[in-house]
C-alpha cells in the first residue's frame, strides 16, 4: 500500500508534529513499507476468525473500589515543565 506525503502530513498535523519537507518524504516511504508488511496479513484466510485486540487472553482485570493515598503535590508538580505553587501551568488556552 502506498503512503503519500499528503497522508503523512495529515497524520503529523493531527499529532501536532512539525515535519520538514524531506522528513515527510522519507516517512512516507518508511510508513509505506511498514503498512505493506502488515498487509501480508490480508493474504491469510481469516474466515470465521474473531477479531482480537489483545495478545494475551486475559479478561476482567479489575481492582476493588478502594481509596489509596494520592501523591504529595510537590512530587506530582515536579514533573511539569511549568508550574506555580499548586497547579501545572500551560500556555493560555483560548476557547
Amino acid at each position: 500500500m502506498e503512503i503519500t506525503k499528503e497522508t503523512v502530513l495529515k497524520v503529523a498535523g493531527l499529532a501536532k508534529l512539525n515535519l520538514a519537507e524531506e522528513e515527510a518524504q522519507r516517512l512516507a516511504h518508511e510508513m509505506g513499507k511498514i503498512v505493506g508488511f502488515a498487509g501480508k496479513l490480508a493474504e491469510m484466510d481469516l474466515e470465521g476468525v474473531q477479531p482480537t485486540t489483545h495478545a494475551v487472553k486475559l479478561e476482567n482485570v479489575f481492582r476493588a473500589d478502594e481509596m489509596q493515598p494520592s501523591y504529595p503535590r510537590e512530587e506530582i508538580l515536579a514533573n511539569g515543565p511549568e508550574r506555580d505553587e499548586a497547579c501545572f501551568v500551560v500556555p493560555k488556552v483560548v476557547e
Partner: peptide, 28 residues
Amino acid sequence: TASKIYCGCTTAFGGEENTHVCPICLGL
C-alpha cells in the same frame, strides 16, 4: 465511587488543587 476509575485516588469533590492525583491518573 470512592476511588477514581483506574487508580486509588479519592473522587471527593474539591480539595486543594492537585492533591488527589497520582502517576496513574496523570498518565505518566
